[in-house]
């Protein structure tokens, strides 16, 4: 099967054309296979978030090619990138970004609603099913503001899965949680990865969690260091 994600010589510079131009990513090559559960590690400021935003089609590289499911995204216009993003990528962010104006179930429905335009029964059922899966079936009508950080992050995981994405990107999803909640959220993602073969790319600073991944990709100063297998 084709790789879910292929990065070919991705470079990213900020402030292009100004005296303070800096290159943050210096030619990244990376391929991720379907169903892989990958940790992205590296020191602060090394370019992990920058890389993740490029992979998630939220940002464009300055040069290089990015293929998702074999499709080259380099020349796609913004509107097409947005559409592709909605259909193929799920996000989980560090500060559990649920939309507070909506309930847990509505947050999970949101990507489907954005895509299809009108709410329907099938969306509601899928949201309920996903909330059940992350263990929050009883919380579906709660506003995000009434839930703990760990609960919100589990809702965010359910939401990331709503469109059945090929790739879930998580930028320090447990960085803001206590150890128990962090482990629970991580464990949930790992289980979902095993059950549904959803591909995950997770930025983390937590070595214990990273060790449980299939592979660790390390970024230092905008370059990927040679691959290493998680010990054990």
């Amino acid at each position: 099967m084709a790789d879910v994600l292929v990065l070919d010589q991705i470079r990213k510079s900020y402030n292009v054309g100004t005296p303070v131009e800096v290159e943050v990513l210096h030619g990244i090559d990376l391929a991720i296979r379907p169903g892989e559960f990958v940790a992205l590690m590296g020191p602060s400021g090394s370019g992990k978030s920058t890389l993740l935003n490029i992979i998630g089609l939220l940002d464009r590289p300055t040069s290089g090619r990015l293929l998702i499911n074999g499709e080259d995204t380099t020349d796609l216009p913004d509107a097409a990138l947005t559409k592709l993003r909605g259909h193929t990528i799920g996000f989980v962010f560090q500060y559990h970004y649920l939309i507070s104006a909506f309930t847990a179930a509505e947050n999970v429905m949101m990507p489907m609603l954005v895509d299809r335009g009108h709410p329907d029964r099938q969306m509601e059922e899928r949201a309920a099913e996903l909330l059940d899966r992350v263990g929050l079936g009883k919380w579906r009508d709660n506003r995000a503001t009434n839930m703990s950080g760990g609960q919100q992050q589990r809702v965010a995981v359910a939401r990331a899965l709503a469109m059945d994405p090929t790739l879930v990107l998580a930028d320090e999803p447990t960085g803001n949680l206590d150890t128990a909640s962090a482990n629970a959220v991580f464990e949930l993602m790992r289980q979902i990865n095993r059950e549904r073969s959803t591909t995950f790319l997770i930025v983390t600073h937590n070595m214990d969690l990273a060790r449980q991944c299939d592979r660790i990709v390390e970024v230092v100063d905008g370059r990927i260091t040679p691959a290493r297998q998680p010990p054990g």
Binding site: L58, D78, A79, R85, G86, G90, Y97, P111, V114, M163
Partner: peptide
């Protein structure tokens, strides 16, 4: 702005 950012991330078009 965070809500807008997350909506955009999940595929909401500028037009929407």
């Amino acid at each position: 702005s965070k809500d807008i950012g997350i909506l955009r991330a999940m595929g909401t078009a500028r037009r929407q």
